[in-house]
Computed example of a mutant assay.
Amino acid sequence: MKSTSFIQVDLRADGILVLTINREAQYNALSIATMQQLEQLLTQAKSQVGLRGILLTGAGEKAFVAGADINEFKMLAPSESRAFAERGQRILQLLEQMPVPVVAAINGFALGGGCELALACHIRIASENAQLGLPEVKLGIIPGYGGTQRLTQLVGKGRALELMLTGNPIKAEEALRIGLVNRVVPAEQLLPTCFDLLGSMLERAPLALTKVLQAAAAAQVGGSAGYEAEAAAFEDCCQSEDFREGVQAFVEKRKPSFKGQ
């Protein structure tokens, strides 16, 4: 995979794909072109041999992604607005449905579309200087890339509505308190922490990781769908070579050697 004009790509030897939104002068704002490039890269990544995890971050020290590109908003015709939102939703759903763990390294402002991007990642780690929020109501619009749905599911209706109805951002520690992020660390420890976290996941059975992600995603459907997905995923895992290896390694008191089969 090659870097694009707005996204830097680094596929590490350990199978972690690092995607860096690279528009530092614009606080890594999500332009239409940036979103298109993200969609292309994620589509390629789904079939990337040896891919084990994804780390998503922003260039520089000030912003993860400070939002969508407001200059493009000004040019958006009302007749184009629904398609604009649906396109963004489709791309972030692609990110959310990746079969490997996706970690957001939030290294500064994560506002509007940037916060929605972080919400679509499976896990969020924030630096102490990070700020997160959905300020769209201050522009007379609402979050359109799935933010109203994911934030509500993540932190609960009351807290989500407070954030979205005021549009006010919150600091990293408050985001941690309400469950919006998983951890808060000093800025210099952000990437090492994310790589360590992904590294611990890479030691586990790849097939089991994928099945956990699928079963957890099914919980959003409601009703019995999540339980049915869990049971089916459990059955698949029990039929895998990794399961047999994991049990044998436990009995023999050694580290398992998983193959993702």
Score class of each variant (00 low, 15 high):
K253H: 04
G146Q: 06
V221S: 10
A83Y: 13
L207I: 11
G246C: 13
K74T: 10
V9C: 15
Q93V: 08
A215C: 08
Q48H: 06
K74W: 06
P135K: 00
G158F: 02
L197Y: 14
S240Q: 02
G147P: 01
L139I: 08
S31L: 04
P135V: 00
C121L: 13
L94K: 10
E136C: 00
T20L: 02
Q261L: 13
K211E: 12
T210I: 08
G226H: 05
P192C: 06
A63F: 15
A249N: 04
S224E: 12
L17G: 01
S224T: 14
P99S: 09
A172G: 14
L207P: 01
V185D: 01
M1Y: 11
G114A: 08
S5D: 06
K253F: 09
Y227T: 12
E86C: 04
T152F: 03
K74D: 04
P169C: 15
A120T: 03
L198P: 01
P99M: 02
K211N: 12
G156F: 08
A130W: 00
G226C: 03
I54M: 09
Q239I: 07
E128L: 02
A232D: 10
M201Y: 06
A208S: 11
A29G: 09
P186C: 15
G167T: 09
T57C: 04
Q89Y: 14
A187W: 02
G167Q: 13
E61S: 14
N168R: 09
A219Q: 10
D196C: 15
R177D: 15
E173K: 09
P99A: 07
P78I: 05
S200Q: 08
L190R: 00
K46G: 04
S81Y: 10
C121Q: 15
V247I: 12
E241S: 11
A175G: 03
V102T: 04
I123W: 14
I16E: 01
G133I: 02
A218K: 12
L132D: 00
I106Q: 00
A120G: 03
L165I: 11
I123R: 11
I141L: 10
R124C: 03
N182R: 14
I142P: 00
E235Y: 08
A25R: 05
T148V: 14
P135T: 01
I7D: 13
T210D: 09
N182T: 06
R12F: 11
G114Y: 06
V247F: 10
P256C: 03
Q44I: 12
R52G: 10
R82M: 11
L76E: 03
Q37M: 13
D242E: 05
P135L: 01
I21T: 02
L95K: 02
F109Q: 10
E128V: 01
E96N: 07
I91L: 11
M75W: 14
G113S: 15
R52I: 09
L176F: 04
F258I: 02
R244I: 01
A120R: 00
E173N: 13
L209R: 07
A110P: 01
V65A: 10
E203F: 04
G147I: 00
